[in-house]
Amino acid sequence: MVYGVLRTADAVSPVPGGSVLASLVLFVLVYGIVFGAGLYYIAKLVRRGPDQTPPMPAAEEANPSRRPMAAAGNP
């Protein structure tokens, strides 16, 4: 961790390797699911193509949502 001062063996947490492995596998799994869902959604948007109708100012005001992905699917 700090060369010659604090070795990794001294700094390691008292957590069994099995727990660490299980948590790593779980995180990879869950991230895979979330990432896959994101890819699926992007692919769906691309397949649908851009909306050709000009934007309506009133329609934008009608959607006060501030969710990060809220703008992605709206014309």
Partner: peptide, 24 residues
């Protein structure tokens, strides 16, 4: 509390992401 905290984080990831995807 390693295992409960990891499971809690997994739960929070799933529900947090659900907010974004559910509306779409």
């Amino acid at each position: 509390l390693y295992i409960p905290i990891i499971l809690m984080l997994i739960g929070l990831i799933l529900r947090g992401v659900a907010f974004e995807f559910r509306f779409k």
